[in-house]
Design a protein around this nucleic acid. Structure first.
Length: 421
RNA sequence: GCGACCGUAGCUCAAUUGGUUAGAGCGCCGGUUUGUGGUACCGGAGGUUGCGGGUUCAAUCCCCGUCGGUCGCCCCA
């Protein structure tokens, strides 16, 4: 492995792993259309400032996790570490406020220079759904319901719980934050080293500290509910009612927070126990302050991102999607007829392939492994008589069909469940 | 960036206290069957034991470094 090795934290996938990955994306694309989310395409790299300004210069992501480079013209660029900043930039740059409320979805690779672990990679992939230009709590409900249905359709809902919290409006958040700083500052002696760090940079994060020594302090910490403005309280209430009406179960987690100041109101995470420390499979919230802080019009927005690798690890064996028909040319005599038949089948939407190599036995072996339900044999005899031999690979029974009607006969049999019929 | 554990055929794993030529199952290739797959039997290919250095008569095994993975911290999907 010393010669050519993939970069740390990247992955090569084939077979089942690739199929799981693909299954997550296909399910996402299907479900997001049910909610009227169109596709948005944004670049994989952006001017570095797009991320450093939106995420904040001092955050870990910007300070030590971004893949930054200069292109040949000397422009500072960065491989995207998240979707939201690029989408927000595009919204501002292209005047998409005219289209608001804008419901968009994306998926693709993201890059973070981190220490890899299970479910954590340097090139990883996320699903993303955003509503831009809507401040109504119903839009929060909609994006969360989309995520919930995605998890249900992936068959992982029973192993994932939705944790919900609110960060309030700017006034609420500010007052709560002040109270938290005061509370933790009064107990510096027992605060863990990590949390002292957080106190300066990101005090809300102390709430989900894993340090034993912090637990008691965190339990006593002021709760946001005591600082909630009437408006913020009503908003949160409305989101919760909406989720109930939508049939989406959730639990309140008062320690669930977002570090960036532009996050307001709703914060949520879909969490599993099955992936160790990387338990969050989908995380999101409302970020009403972001687009304004990036120099755009003040624009309310809410959205989420979900880790494709993490979801792929949770889904069961994806149902295989083998070809339906294996065409077997027996000797040189059948080769052209086999190609004609393959073209005819595929044109009619029947998944079909042929094994190119080996004698009949080998080709049949390959046909069996392909998972096809029907093998079609075409050799000298068939060509001479203008027929094909259909073999049911499940039962082994064989019938003949005319070459001219082969495609319809095969389709009928695939629909009918076998050669009989 | 910090701490701990791990690294043997494509995959999952063996290999006595350091001791001949590093084995097995699955998979792959070929044959038993010159127009018939899945089960069976026979055979074959495939390893610089991640890489580099050290200790030793002798290293898959002990030591150091490095690369990669895993688990946790930070942070986060």
């Amino acid at each position: 492995m010393s010669t050519q090795q993939r970069p740390r934290g990247t992955q090569d996938m084939i077979g089942e792993a690739a199929a799981r990955f693909d299954h997550v994306i296909e399910t996402f694309n299907r479900v997001r259309k049910l909610y009227g989310f169109g596709r948005v395409e944004v670049p994989v790299f952006e001017a570095t400032a797009v991320f450093s300004r939106s995420l904040g210069e001092t955050t870990d992501v910007v300070a030590k996790e971004m893949y930054c480079f200069e292109d040949r013209g000397g422009d500072p660029l960065t491989l995207r570490p998240e979707f939201t900043a690029g989408i927000a930039r595009a919204y501002i740059e292209n005047g998409w406020q005219q289209l608001s409320p804008l419901k968009v979805a994306a998926w693709g690779p993201l890059f973070r220079y981190e220490r890899p672990q299970k479910g954590r990679f340097r090139q990883f992939h996320q699903l993303d759904a955003e509503v831009l230009g809507a401040g109504e709590p119903a839009s929060d409900v909609e994006v969360i319901a989309l995520a919930a249905q995605l998890l249900t359709e992936l068959g992982v809902a029973d192993r994932v719980v939705l944790q919900l919290n609110t960060l309030g409006d700017a006034e609420t958040r500010g007052a709560w934050r002040e109270a938290l700083v005061a509370h933790f500052s009064a107990h510096l002696d027992v605060l863990s080293a990590e949390s002292k760090e957080r106190l300066a940079k990101n005090p809300l994060r102390i709430l989900d500290s894993k340090a034993e020594s912090d637990k008691a302090l965190v339990a006593d910490a002021p709760r946001i509910d005591a600082y909630m403005t009437a408006e913020a309280g009503a908003f949160f209430e409305s989101v919760q009612k909406g989720l109930q009406a939508s049939g989406v179960a959730f639990t309140r987690n008062t320690a669930l927070v977002r570090g960036f100041d532009y996050y307001r109101h709703t914060a949520f995470e879909f969490v599993t126990e099955a992936l160790g420390a990387q338990g969050t499979v989908i995380g999101g919230g409302r970020y009403d302050g972001l687009i304004g802080s990036m120099g755009g019009p003040e624009t309310p927005a809410v959205g989420w991102a979900g880790g494709i690798e993490r979801l792929a690890m949770l889904v069961g064996e994806p149902r295989a999607t083998p070809v339906q028909v294996a065409v077997v040319a027996v000797g040189a005599a059948g080769e052209e007829a086999a190609l004609r038949l393959l073209a005819g089948l595929r044109a009619k939407g029947v998944a079909a392939e042929q094994g190119w190599r080996g004698n009949l036995k080998k080709k049949m072996e390959r046909a069996g492994k392909s998972g096809a339900r029907i093998a079609v044999l075409i050799g000298e005899d068939e060509v001479a008589k203008g027929i094909v031999t259909l073999r049911d690979l499940g039962t082994g029974e064989q019938v003949l069909a005319t070459m001219a009607e082969a495609v319809t006969a095969i389709r009928a049999r695939l629909a009918g469940g076998g050669l009989k019929g």
